[in-house]
Structures are given as C-alpha cells and as structure tokens.
C-alpha cells in the first residue's frame, strides 16, 4: 500500500463498519456529505411516501391513546382536547411496569443462559467435527422448524414434573431451549473463523479445554455476542406464545401479556389498550433508535452464512 493510499484508507475507514466477514454496510454519518441535488427530487418524494406508510400506524396508535373511550372522532384525527387519562390510569395501576420488570428479568435470564450454554456447545460442535456431531448440529437446527404449540403438551408435562409453571426459571428454561438453535448457529459460524492455531498455542502452554475456551475463545466472541443479545433479546422481550401458557399468575405477566389483557378483556376501552401498547413498545423502540447501528449490523451478521 502506498502512503497516499494508506492515508486515503485511514480517512475512509471511519465511514464504514466492517462486518465479521468483510462485507460493508453504510454508516449514517457518511451521508452528511451528500449535497442536495435537484435531480434527486423523486428520491425525496419516494422517501416521504415511505416515511408516511411506516410512521402512520405509530401515529394512529398514539392518537387513539390520547382519546377517551367514548370519543367517536375518526382514529386518525388529532384529539381535541388531548385526553391524558389513559396514561394517568396506567401509571396509577402500575400493571405495565410489573410487566416490564417481568419481561426484563426473563430476557436477562434467557440471554445469560443462552450465551454461556450456546457458546460452549458451539465451540465443541465447530472444533470437534465428527459425523456424530454433524448429526447433533442438524438436529439442533431442525428445532427452528417446529410450529408454535406443537410441543405444548410435552412441555407442559415437563414443566409440571419440575414444578416450573409460573416461575421465572421455568419460562427462562423453555425460551432458552427454543432460542438455542439460532444462538448455536451464530456462534458456530463465528468460531469457525477463529484460527485453531490460537487453541494450539494455549494447549502448548498446558491449558485444558475449559481454560482455552474461557481465556482464548470467549474474549474473541464479543461482536457475535452483541448480535446474539440483540436478536434474541428482541425476540424474548416480545415473546407471546409460551409466556401465555406458562405464566398463568397475573403477577408474572410479561409486557406482551399485559397489553393482551387490555385488548382482550376490555375491548371497548381502546384508548386504555392503546396507551398500554404505546408504553409497552417504547423501551425497545427507544433502545433501537439509540443503538440502531448494532441492531442492523446484528441482523446482517445473522443472515450471512459462512
């Protein structure tokens, strides 16, 4: 590389975020340098339409949440006057915040379990590539194809045997089991790209497998772990099917279940239900807006097969 080329590379480097396998996705900061051009008018027109199509549903749910339940004005029309009662009622009852607490505990629990168990399993499956392990890997992957509720009876009998119904650890175990295939898939792909020479060097120093894993491999897994945390985190936070059947106690309801009860039982009070949906969606959307680079990168990394 010539010095000039190197300087150019260094200057441009910041503009790109390189993914694990060298593909490039654009960085939002880069566009600041794009000037306004008259011939781009159609792009701005299309963009405006897209923004309308994608923001309108969020606008409508907010409008509904700001109206009383006997307000008969069209849903898309701005409330007059704004009615804050729906939100006041939510803060007074506090149900949604219990839901958030439950969802948070479950999400953190599942993520912790999956990262440890998943990365350990992936290390074994990608380093010890025997025929038998190939079968194990394929069986694990086929779990992704199970339609929700097919396994309900069996999961129910496991859960009642271990007394796990309506407990945090019970639902954490179920959701971890169903999420593991994706986690193991992501980790095996990534570990495959870590040179075996690193393991060998550790082995020469007398490290056992467990030591090698924690001292050498685990520190390399930072980027893929972020991907796992984001993809699985979103899925678990929004999980509905298994939570609905295994968190029977009201005090254990997750955020999705709390929102469901408002839409399900008090179907007349749309304002109240909508306000719950708005508050319920907020944490993840805010997190996404602040960390969108990582969210989108994670989605891309998960899709690119090795």
């Amino acid at each position: 590389m010539t010095p000039a080329a190197y300087l150019r590379y260094k200057k441009n480097k910041k503009k790109y975020e390189t993914t694990t396998d060298g593909t490039v996705i654009f960085d939002p900061d880069q566009e600041e340098r794009v000037p306004w051009r008259k011939k781009d008018w159609w792009r701005y027109l299309v963009s405006a339409l897209l923004l309308l199509v994608y923001l309108f549903p969020f606008y409508v749910i907010i409008m509904v949440s700001l109206k009383t339940f006997n307000d008969t004005s069209p849903r898309a029309v701005f409330p007059h006057p704004i009615y804050w009662g729906n939100f006041a009622a939510i803060f007074k009852s506090g149900e949604i915040f219990i839901g958030m607490k439950n969802s948070l505990i479950i999400t953190v629990g599942v993520l912790a379990l999956q990262v440890v168990i998943g990365s350990l399993a992936a290390y074994a499956l990608s380093r010890n590539q025997t025929k038998f392990n190939e079968v194990v890997r394929n069986l694990i992957m086929s779990v992704m194809m199970i339609t929700p509720l097919t396994t309900l009876v069996g999961v129910y009998s496991t859960m009642s045997k271990i007394h796990g119904t309506s407990t945090y650890w019970g639902i954490i175990l179920i959701l971890s089991a169903f999420g593991l295939p994706l986690t193991i898939f992501l980790y095996t792909n990534f570990i495959g790209s870590i040179p075996r020479a690193l393991d060998e060097a550790a082995a020469i120093d007398g490290a056992g497998n467990l030591q090698t894993f924690f001292m050498v491999i685990l520190p390399q897994l930072r980027t893929v772990t972020v991907t796992v945390l984001i993809l699985q985190g979103v899925g678990i936070w929004n999980e509905y099917t298994y939570s609905y059947y295994f968190l029977q106690k009201q005090s254990m309801a997750t955020i999705t279940l709390v929102i469901k009860t408002f839409f399900g039982s008090v179907m007349n009070d749309y304002g109240q239900a909508a306000a719950n949906a708005v508050i319920g969606m907020l944490p993840l959307i805010v997190l996404y807006l602040f960390l969108q680079k990582y969210f989108i990168q994670g989605q891309v990394d998960s899709a690119i097969k090795s």
């Binding site: 399993a121 069986l139 396994t151 999961v155 496991t158 089991a177």
Partner: peptide, 19 residues
C-alpha cells in the same frame, strides 16, 4: 470437547425433543 454441549442438549431434550 463433546462434554461442552451436554447442557444445551439436555435442555433441548427436556423442552423440545421429548415434547
């Protein structure tokens, strides 16, 4: 190394394969 995937496999037998 195979011992490393035993926790994952046990979890999946209990909650996926057996069901």
């Amino acid at each position: 190394l195979n011992i490393f995937y035993i926790p994952a496999v046990v979890l999946m037998i209990l909650f996926v394969a057996y069901p």
